[in-house]
Design a protein around this nucleic acid. Sequence first.
DNA 1: TTGTAGGCGTTATCAA
DNA 2: TTGATAACGCCTACAA
Lengths: 338, 338
Amino acid sequence: MAISNPSIAEVGRKAKVHPSTVSRILNKSFESHRYSAKTVARVIAVAQELGYRPSQAGRTLRTGKTMQIGVLVPDITSVFFNQFIKHLEKKVWATGYRLLICCSNENAQQEQEYLSDLLSRGIDGLVVAPSDTQSCQQVITAGIPLVSVDRPLLGMTVPHVGLDNIEAGQMMGQHLIEMGYKHVMAVAPCLPNDPTLPQRCKGLAQGLVTEGAVLKTVELPSEATDEQLNKIVNFATAKPHTAIVGLTEDTTFRVYECLRSHGLSIPDDVGMGGIDDFPAARLVCPAISVIAQPIEQLAHKAFECLLEMINETEKASSTIESSIYCQLSPEFIRRESL
Amino acid sequence: MAISNPSIAEVGRKAKVHPSTVSRILNKSFESHRYSAKTVARVIAVAQELGYRPSQAGRTLRTGKTMQIGVLVPDITSVFFNQFIKHLEKKVWATGYRLLICCSNENAQQEQEYLSDLLSRGIDGLVVAPSDTQSCQQVITAGIPLVSVDRPLLGMTVPHVGLDNIEAGQMMGQHLIEMGYKHVMAVAPCLPNDPTLPQRCKGLAQGLVTEGAVLKTVELPSEATDEQLNKIVNFATAKPHTAIVGLTEDTTFRVYECLRSHGLSIPDDVGMGGIDDFPAARLVCPAISVIAQPIEQLAHKAFECLLEMINETEKASSTIESSIYCQLSPEFIRRESL
DNA sequence: TTGTAGGCGTTATCAA
DNA sequence: TTGATAACGCCTACAA
């Protein structure tokens, strides 16, 4: 029997004042109403004594605001989104908002349902790393402030905060040629709706500007077959000056695991690098050189952007200049594998 | 300007029926009210057309249920809680509930505030891995169904689902003596309120039953000083047949990193093991032998237990037999470091 | 300095 | 087979 929380009415009854008085005192809204210090003290005391806690449901119904922000990411177990959420949460909490975290598992239908549910529960804004192009349409239609992170929603004038993936690829490519690698294989996860992957590839190609450099791209499914793994190993051992680049933390992890299980020596037999950093990359031996994202900055920018939109929609000034497209610079972390 | 969703009233207006009719049709609550197929179809069509979405706030105010479940963990970035949440979420979603995820950062005050906030927003139940002994008191007082996971709330008759930590320690200890190790150091994080750590130690001691076996325990703060790290290295190199056991994934990671940076060879110079598994443990070379938890099962049991309590409190049958204490068995994963 | 009344969206109870 | 009404807890324009 969930003990029903005391309402504003009960506090008022016990303090011998009208509920509205309680509301104003507890919310410190004294613009047009000033109360005697005695009353204020009494009301606060009673509220404390009764353990009064405002009902968000009531408040939301009245004000239309939930003070909740939705976050939809494709995968909550990846280090990147993990950290992102952690930073976002810290920032968000400080402003009184709370996070409603959702995980689409890279599944378009699940994403749709999740968003629909969020809209139903009520959110004041949404931060999304979309795994589907269309799922956010309903959020836009509902007029809820929206920011995409990591993966942009191409052609949808939604503000975006993410990595400069071209630059990330270039950085890696340039380092590769500096180290004398010529044959490079980029390994990508099978995510046709993730526009960051072709961009990273494109950057990689742009960075690999030297006589006879070759870039090959291959997709590695989540449950890779021996055939697919062999393809990578064959590439790695076929020629000298060969390097493999994982385009995401997951692919980097799995490729590294594969190369090692085949007894290949890194970086002697083959070079190895990755885009996105993760703890294991520095623990393994040889440690893996990676391109890291400024995750905290990403989270901060995304929330600042969202907050601005929320405040604007409140003022109904609707200066929908929502063409913010923020690209942050990556950082190369040199370790031992390249 | 967040477009206000159509309400049940607007659907009713357009479909020429009373709001309550809409409500019952959309909720399929036809026990005492049967409507003509024509009306039903029309209402559903209009709802669809208008893009009607029920307002959780209104519903909550009326029913007292939020269909939200709080999850409070000390650290969202640890692999263990990560996976736990992932599994929990999948299970919870299927029953119509949603997760409100909170991260206390091992901070008692933050935990208090979080819980207070959750109570204010309204949750139908709470799954908590407490980092403080008292913070859950307010949840109990509020009469909200509660289950602790991982870390039990000692002496508080709150249902618990967690690992059999004694058994986990024993398993590790037994393997240690089988492999001929005699001098063992257990490395723990500085978490005085985590009762699983002493239990893991206790089990370890119980497992180390052999002539001349020695168990030493040391705490490793989050930002370890050189002195603390040297202490570990000195222990590792002082005598033969020495092994180090990380009591959590974090300590295991850091100790391994430290041993390696000091050029120690594992397992030749020193053995290394850990309680709790994590991806990096199998990627490093030598791979780390660990005790793994049945995380998915943990999440399932915890939710089943919570759901039962929620349904019971609803029926107000209040058979508060809440003395469930569920301990799951660990699994030893032999790799190369021991 | 305090009170009053209305309504946010929903559903349960009662009536027709 | 359908409708009317009240109430959940809160906030706020308006009145005293």
